[in-house]
């Protein structure tokens, strides 16, 4: 097997995550799909690290994880406060950005 298959898997997972962001309305699930996309990227980074024979790709993946953790914290806080004010976790309910 060619390790390139890891990249194909990564691309597939990324696409699934992106599609999920587009079709789900529950903010939490949308958020989870974003996490899925991030993880797909991480897989690609790790594969690249193996491909080039150095650890920089893994470092980037590590930083991605840290940033993702920060993002999750803030994102979930936003979802919670959104739910408090609107009693809904639907991203479509927060649709004030229009004329």
């Amino acid at each position: 097997m060619n390790p390139v298959n890891y990249l194909y898997l990564s691309a597939l997972l990324f696409t699934i995550g992106a599609t999920g962001v587009l079709i789900r309305r529950n903010a939490i699930v949308v958020f989870m799909c974003i996490e899925l996309m991030l993880n797909a990227c991480n897989l690609a980074f790790v594969t690249f690290s193996r491909m080039h024979g150095n650890l920089d790709g893994q470092i980037i993946a590590f930083f991605t994880m840290v940033v993702a953790a920060a993002e999750v914290v803030v994102g979930l806080a936003i979802i919670v406060s959104l739910f408090r004010t609107r009693h809904s976790a639907s991203v479509d309910d927060a649709s004030l950005m229009k004329l």
Binding site: L22, R25, V91, A94, S95, L96, K98, L99
Partner: peptide
Amino acid sequence: MRRLQNGFARSYAVSMF
């Protein structure tokens, strides 16, 4: 064009994607 601006974050996300 303003109909495109429907306020739904998901519609904007489709454009981005």
